[in-house]
Amino acid sequence: MSETSLLNELNATIEYYVNRNGYQPTRIILGYKAYSNLMKDKTFADEVNNSAVNPNKRKYKKLKIKVTKDDHQLELE
């Protein structure tokens, strides 16, 4: 799976979550391999790197990112 399609999947998942529930999720839960693939995408990496000085408080689209031990996990909470 390419980085761009994974980013498109993440964006579509966020949009679907908002349309279904009527509010933004509080955080994105990503597996470490999915996070690594997403960081290869310049758009995602720029937004995440510029979101906070502390790497443990990074955000994408104002949603907190939590990296897990699962390989390719992609969930919203």
Rank of each mutant, 00 (worst) to 15 (best):
G31E: 07
K69R: 15
T26R: 12
K59D: 07
G31D: 09
L74K: 05
I14A: 01
E3I: 08
L30N: 02
E75G: 04
N8A: 14
I29M: 06
L74P: 04
S51Y: 03
L6R: 14
I14Y: 02
F44G: 00
A52Q: 03
K57W: 13
E9N: 12
R58D: 03
E15H: 08
L76F: 04
A45K: 02
T68W: 06
R20I: 09
L74A: 08
L7I: 05
A34E: 07
L6I: 13
L76Y: 05
L74C: 07
K40S: 02
K61T: 11
I29T: 09
I14S: 01
K69P: 11
S51F: 04
N21G: 09
K66A: 10
L30T: 03
N21Y: 14
D41T: 01
L30K: 01
V53S: 08
N19K: 15
L7R: 03
P25R: 01
K69E: 13
T43F: 04
Y32C: 03
L76V: 05
T4I: 08
N8I: 14
K69S: 14
L63G: 00
N50P: 02
K62W: 07
K42Q: 11
G31M: 09
I14T: 02
N11F: 09
I29L: 10
K64D: 12
Y16R: 11
V48N: 01
N8Y: 07
K33Y: 14
D71Y: 15
N21E: 14
T26D: 10
N56G: 09
M1P: 15
N54P: 06
H72Y: 15
K33P: 04
D70L: 13
R20S: 10
E3L: 06
N11M: 07
P25W: 02
A12L: 12
S2G: 08
D46N: 14
Y60M: 07
K42W: 05
N8W: 15
D70G: 15
Q24S: 11
K42M: 06
A52W: 03
K57I: 07
Y32R: 03
Y16C: 06
K42V: 13
